[in-house]
Every structure is written in structure tokens, then in C-alpha cells.
Design a protein around this nucleic acid. Structure first.
Lengths: 364, 364
DNA sequence: AAAAATTTAGCAACAGCGTTGCGTAATAGG
DNA sequence: CCTATTACGCAACGCTGTTGCTAAATTTTT
């Protein structure tokens, strides 16, 4: 949720989101935990906790006896109090996942999409899939919305698919609007990699620092989490990481430039030299670190996950071996914890994040 | 100014900063202008304007007669109500500038620093320079502080110079602390390129989008402005843009990798082929656009400014020629409007920004 | 010349937020 | 049973932006 001016309702939402962030990060928590983490006064935390409890988002979960004194009430998030559905729209498949308030993936389903599918095809597939998932235990009333992660270019702010690369029928499609009408649910549209990094950030909790999610699938993309929020760029087009030049004299890429990371990597992988391909990717990752100084790098994508250890080793080594990196310049490299679900799950979490995440104040 | 929790004083500061942003962006403004830009109620704007007027930050500047009805009071920023001094600490020189609240540079002075200068050398030079500048018209009482832009690596949050590259006496120097004590002024320490981009953002006003400042001096660095704030990365080390590999089989760089943008560019420039050097830089800039999707690219740095038109033309052409860039994917390329003063001026504006810019809420 | 319409400005009361002061509840130890 | 300690929350408070309404200043209409 973004807005320009700050009023008291912003205070409420913001501080409430802080408490929710603590609850999502820690399995259980008590009032003093929140006080320590946020700097709010105990009294303020009590008010927020009372509100969240009344809304069913958190609940008491026993007491902790601190030795001497009155026992502290322990609270926990109620994971099944809210759900969101996430969709990963790829060129040939639709993946749907059901995610709860804690960020856990409950169901995952993949269905094929016809070649050159139209918006109508997609809406029908979404409708069927959502009805099937929401039917489980009558979740409909606890469903906060649908998140869609899709290949770009698209316009996140207006929910518009500008020109999905490689899909004939997807030029200037107001997907959010027509999907909301067709499905009768709030819909959030975003680029696939941006959805993916949101999943990692949401699951890692409030203390997650600047990070990138590197996706190696049909192409190579990067999703970025900077200063506590997804970075989308000026036109929702950030993340075309595969089209950065790493070899000035390299082969011609589809994008018209020579020696893009994507084409160089692809050639190596095609030749069967996965280790070399992984090292090429690692060069690109270190480029990102030099530019953006990230605390986390997460690896995902179908092509990468076919050789997870090879890629993980190559990137970890390249990051560690970088001669200029001092001990304080630490970056954690890991495989995405969500595997093939990361995009769809992230799309779902973007919906949850809009409701229960830290609100942002939009620039003028 | 950053804080974790949001309270009513945050509301005040935030909305006040919005009004100041309007005042800085437009030469003159009235109540209705602010209402339109921010969404605040007229009454709320009146209160803020009254407070700012009482503090001397803005003042009435006539009336506008809207045809029918009571004339609207026109306000303007009072540029000389507040000043800050900015310092650009380079390997051999210290540049000091005096900047007013509107972001205008009033005085600029360069003094040499001894080879392998020590913290004491710097403090003395700063002391002399500041006394000289603050003496002009007795600005001392209106001086909000000193900003220092310096080569890294450094720790912005703690005001610590970790290991200024190429300076022997600069390992783990708590520069902010000792400078504040020695100069009796609030001090803000940041990386040079980060200070530079702050200058551009501050001068362009509130509507400035995601942007990068490309500095070509002894090395190549990049300062980033993302989502309305400077991007520093996880360890204040973002911006080592010169050490991104653009030529996998290129020459060995001082950083230990092959074909860094910096060394490839340097070789071309050394050979006298500035046009080629500029094209190499342009490849790096387009890499940034693919990754971050920026609205503005600004060019600066002594080496670049020796051939400004060559570089501007090469980067503009590369950005425009990129085949995948549609018409809606516009990026403005320009030379920095501040020339050689950009780092020092930006360091000063960081101090002003702390007091009168949009406050941020720090992550937990 | 007087009345009406229009636009701007601001006083006063209000709701809602986090904070502060302080009383109460619950426990362990003496 | 008393005391120290810890956790909790009611009530009053100060501050914010908002809302309702009145006043002021100007042009247009009568």
C-alpha cells in the first residue's frame, strides 16, 4: 500500500506491520520481544497486539515464566487466518500456489497453457485453478487476493502487460483490471523475478537486507530487494540482468548487443559445459555485487536447478575469491528455499505484503 | 534522519518535508499547489506553512489573484536561511563548497592535500577552509553541518573510513566522530559517488526518479538514487561500477578479475582513442539500465569532463540504439549540472537532506 | 451602489495515534 | 505472610491531520 501524505492511520498501519514482521520472523514472540525489536513503548505494543488478536491475525500461545515476576504472554502468528493465491504465468505453463500468512506454501499445481495463449485462456485457467484451491476448507473468506508473476515488459503500477516477450496476444493487456472483474478478487501484477525476490524477503523476515534473486530459466533475470522493498525501476523493467554485456567480443544476442551474459551462458550450457556456464553466471553475479553491494544472493530457475550444486559452488567461490572483498564485505549465497514455486509463491506474498507488510509512502 | 517506529513527530517531519520539497522544486508556490501535490488538506498545509514561515525557511512573496475570489498568498523558499558546507576528499585535493537551502553553490575552493595525508592533515585543512567560508556574512549560525564525500570503502552509518583506497593512513578512522569534535559541527560522511547523486536528486526536486551518476576520474564509479533515496548497499560499498566485467577475456585489473570496465576503458583512453573509451563506458551504462531500469543517467568526473561531448554522444547513442528499448522505456542522459563540484555539493546537500529532506523509517 | 458568487484563509472541535504516570496482577524468594 | 520483581493495562495527555464552519477579500451580477 502506497500513499503520499502521512496521517495517523499510517502510523497505525506502519507500527502494526512492524509487529506482524516480528511475528513472521520469529515463531513465537511476546510483548518485550516487540518492544526490543521496534523501540515502541510496551503500552503501544499492547494496543497493537490487542488489535491484531481481535482480528485473528495473532493469538496467545502460552506463557513464559521469567523466573521471578508475572509470566509473559507468548503470542504466535495464526498462519491460516489469511491466504493468498499466487500465479506464475510462463510461456507454456501456469503454476498456482496457495500461501498462508506465514509464507508457507500449502498447495502447488501446474497446468499447461496452450501455445500462444490469449488473455481469455489465462483467465479461464486461473478461474478453474482458484476455485479448486479456494474450495479446500472454504478459504474464500480468508483469501486476500491473487498475485500474478509474469514475464515482462509490463507496467506494475497500472496492472498492464505491455508486451510479454514471446507471446503474440499480449500487447497492452490491462490484465489486473480484467482479472479482478473476471475472478472477483483483488489482483496484483508484477514481473516474475520481482515476485520471486519478494518471496525470499517475506520468508526471511524483517531483518533481510539488500538481496538479489538470480533466475536461470529460458533467459536469465534478476529480482532485487533494496532497502526493504522490491526494486522495479522507472518502468517496472529492472532485472534484465541476462542482457548485460560480459564479453565485448562475444556472440550476438537476440537483444542486438554482443556478449550478453545470457547468450554467453547459453552457449556454454548448450555445449554441455555446465561448470563453465556456472562460472560465467558467477561473473555476472559478482558484477551485481560490485554495483549494488548485496547481503544475499539467491539462485533459482529451472535450468539452474538441474545442476544446483554446480551453480552454487561456482557462485560461492567467485564471490568469496573476489580479491577486494574484505571480511566485513560478506555476502551469503544460497539456493532459493522455494525451488520451482518461488515466482508463484512470491506473487502470492506480494498480495499479503500489501495488506500486512510495511507500508510505503509514495513519492510525490 | 532515520528511525524505526513511527510516531506523530514523524508525521510532522514527513509532511513538512513534502512542503519543503515542493518549495525546492518550484520557484514559488501557494497553498493550493501543495494541496494538489501532496494530497494534504488545505488546513494541514496552512499549519505547516505557518511553522516553516516562523522558522524562516519560507516567506510570503506576493499574492496571486485567481480572477474571482480572495487572492492566494504566494510563498517562496528562503535560500539563505540555511547553509551547509560540503567537502570532496580526493587523493591529492580537498574541494570545499558552500551550498544554500535551495541547492545553489555559492563558493567553491580547491586546496592541495599532501601526498599520503593523515587524518590530522585533513582536519586542519577542513578547519581553515570552513572558517574562511563561514566567515562570509557570518553564516555560522545558519550552518547546518559539514558533509564529506570520500573514496571508499567506508561505513556510512558509523562514520568510519574503513580503508580509503590508495591512502596509507586511512584504516578504520572514525572520521565523523573526530571531525565533529574538532570542527564543532554536525558531520555526515559518505562515499563520493553517493554524495554526487544526492546533489543531482536534490537539485532536480521531488519528482526525480531512479537515477545513476557515472563518475570517470581516477577510477570509474557509480552513485545510485533508487526509490527516492541514495542506495548504499549492505556495507556502504555500492557503486564499484568500474569493477564490473565487460570483457571476459580482457586484461587483468587491479581488482584481480579480467576485463573490468575500468581497465578496458583505461586502456582505450590511454591509447588516445577517447571515442572508443566512451563507447566502452556506454556499454557499461546500458548494462546498468538493463539491470536497474533508470530514468536518468548523469555523467561527471574529471577524466570524462575533458571530453564531455564525446562521452555524452556515445552514451546517448548506446542508450537510444538499444534495440529492446521501446518508446515508453525512456532514459534521460545528461552531463552533471554541477561539473567538478558535484561530489562536494552533494555532500553538503546530504546534510541539508537530513534536516529538511523526506525522513526515512529505518528497517528493524 | 449594493448584493451575490467565488475563492482563500484559519479558528475550534474532534478522532486517533503513541507516550506517560501509575495502579494492578502474578510469580518467586525469604 | 511480606517483599521484590516482572508483566500488563487503564486513564490522562500531547500531538497530529481532519472536519465543520466562519470570516475575509475579491469579481461579477443586479
Amino acid at each position: 500500500m502506497t500513499r503520499v501524505t502521512a496521517d495517523v492511520s499510517f502510523l497505525r498501519d506502519y507500527n502494526q506491520a512492524l509487529v506482524m514482521a516480528v511475528g513472521r520472523t520469529a515463531r513465537t514472540f511476546e510483548r518485550s520481544t516487540v518492544v526490543e525489536a521496534t523501540g515502541l513503548t510496551p503500552q503501544a505494543v499492547s494496543k497493537v497486539i490487542a488489535r491484531l488478536t481481535a482480528n485473528g491475525l495473532i493469538r496467545p500461545a502460552g506463557v513464559r515464566r521469567p523466573g521471578i515476576g508475572k509470566p509473559a504472554v507468548v503470542y504466535e502468528l495464526v498462519p491460516d487466518s489469511r491466504y493468498a493465491i499466487g500465479a506464475h504465468v510462463a510461456r507454456r505453463t501456469l503454476r498456482l500456489v496457495l500461501v498462508d500468512l506465514a509464507g508457507a506454501v500449502h498447495h502447488s499445481a501446474v497446468s499447461p497453457l496452450p501455445g500462444d495463449f490469449t488473455p481469455e485462456h489465462l483467465l479461464d485457467a486461473l478461474s478453474v485453478g482458484i476455485d479448486s484451491m479456494a474450495g479446500i476448507g472454504d478459504l474464500r473468506s480468508r483469501l486476500t487476493g491473487l498475485g500474478i508473476g509474469m514475464i515482462g515488459p509490463l507496467d506494475h503500477a497500472n496492472g498492464l502487460v505491455r508486451d510479454a516477450h514471446g507471446l503474440r496476444h499480449w500487447h497492452d493487456v490491462p490484465l489486473r483490471e480484467i482479472a479482478e472483474k473476471h475472478l472477483n478478487l483483488p489482483v496484483h501484477l508484477d514481473k516474475d523475478v520481482t515476485a520471486g525476490i519478494t518471496a525470499e524477503a517475506w520468508r526471511h523476515g524483517a531483518t533481510f537486507g539488500d538481496a538479489a534473486l538470480i533466475m536461470v530459466e529460458s533467459g536469465i533475470g534478476g529480482g532485487f530487494w533494496l532497502s526493504g522493498a522490491a526494486h522495479r525501476g522507472a518502468h517496472t523493467n529492472a532485472g534484465e540482468f541476462g542482457h548485460t554485456v560480459v564479453d565485448l567480443t562475444g556472440p550476438l544476442c537476440v537483444c542486438g548487443r554482443h556478449g550478453c551474459l545470457e547468450i554467453v551462458h547459453h552457449r556454454a550450457a548448450e555445449a554441455g559445459d555446465i561448470a563453465h556456464a556456472a562460472r560465467v553466471l558467477a561473473v555476472g553475479v559478482v558484477n551485481l555485487l560490485q554495483t549494488l553491494d548485496l547481503a544475499h544472493v539467491l539462485l533459482a530457475g529451472a535450468d539452474l536447478l538441474r545442476h544446483p550444486q554446480t551453480y552454487l559452488a561456482a557462485v560461492t567461490e567467485a564471490v568469496g575469491a573476489d580479491a577486494r572483498r574484505a571480511d566485513w564485505l560478506s555476502t551469503r549465497v544460497a539456493l532459493s528455499s522455494l525451488g520451482a514455486d518461488v515466482i508463484a509463491a512470491g506473487a502470492a506474498m506480494q498480495v499479503l505484503d500489501q495488506h500486512y507488510g510495511i507500508p510505503e509512502l509514495a513519492p510525490i
